Simulated assay, not measured.
Amino acid sequence: MLLRERETAEGRLVSVCDTDCLGETYDNGRATITVSEEFYGGDDAVEATAEEVVAGLHRAQVANIVGTEAVGVAVEAGLVDEETVLEFDETRHAQLLWL
């Protein structure tokens, strides 16, 4: 999985995706999501284990998560409710917002 963390005016933004999702576009009939290098990759993105992804999500103010494995890690850790996960073609997407 790729993990990217950056500071924004609204707090820490974390993006996580399955490595094989990078550069792909997915559709579910109602919406489309593109897993762009600009948002999910870049020089500050690192390959991460499940434990590192969970730690990064705990540091996030806002997080975007794409991919069956990445979303599964967030759900298993209790950070994302399975009922809020969106299905896109053959992958999954979730967002996390700490208030």
Rank of each mutant, 00 (worst) to 15 (best):
71 V>S: 08
38 E>S: 14
18 D>V: 08
48 A>I: 04
37 E>L: 11
42 G>E: 10
25 T>Q: 11
27 D>V: 09
6 R>E: 15
95 Q>W: 01
74 A>I: 05
84 T>Y: 00
94 A>K: 03
41 G>Y: 02
75 V>I: 15
87 E>A: 13
41 G>A: 09
78 G>S: 08
36 S>G: 14
64 N>L: 10
7 E>W: 02
95 Q>G: 13
72 G>K: 07
3 L>V: 14
24 E>V: 07
11 G>N: 08
28 N>H: 06
42 G>S: 09
98 W>P: 00
38 E>I: 09
47 E>H: 13
11 G>S: 06
20 D>M: 07
30 R>K: 11
97 L>W: 04
46 V>Y: 00
71 V>E: 04
38 E>A: 15
27 D>P: 00
6 R>D: 01
95 Q>A: 12
73 V>F: 02
96 L>S: 07
41 G>K: 10
99 L>M: 13
25 T>L: 14
75 V>P: 10
58 H>E: 15
51 E>C: 03
45 A>V: 09
24 E>S: 14
5 E>Y: 00
99 L>V: 12
30 R>A: 12
90 E>M: 01
96 L>R: 05
95 Q>S: 11
75 V>N: 10
77 A>M: 07
52 E>N: 08
92 R>D: 02
67 G>Y: 03
83 E>M: 05
95 Q>M: 12
99 L>S: 13
24 E>L: 14
73 V>E: 01
38 E>W: 01
81 D>P: 05
2 L>T: 03
11 G>T: 03
20 D>V: 14
90 E>Q: 11
97 L>R: 14
15 S>G: 01
82 E>Y: 00
84 T>E: 12
49 T>A: 07
74 A>Q: 05
80 V>G: 04
65 I>S: 07
80 V>W: 05
54 V>F: 05
36 S>I: 10
25 T>N: 06
99 L>A: 13
82 E>L: 10
65 I>A: 09
34 T>L: 11
67 G>W: 05
72 G>E: 10
62 V>C: 03
10 E>A: 15
96 L>Q: 04
88 F>D: 01
21 C>V: 04
3 L>D: 10
23 G>T: 11
3 L>G: 08
46 V>M: 08
16 V>S: 02
7 E>S: 13
18 D>G: 06
34 T>Y: 02
82 E>R: 15
42 G>Y: 07
52 E>D: 14
59 R>P: 06
13 L>W: 11
26 Y>S: 10
80 V>C: 04
54 V>D: 04
1 M>E: 07
27 D>Y: 05
12 R>E: 09
19 T>F: 00
87 E>K: 12
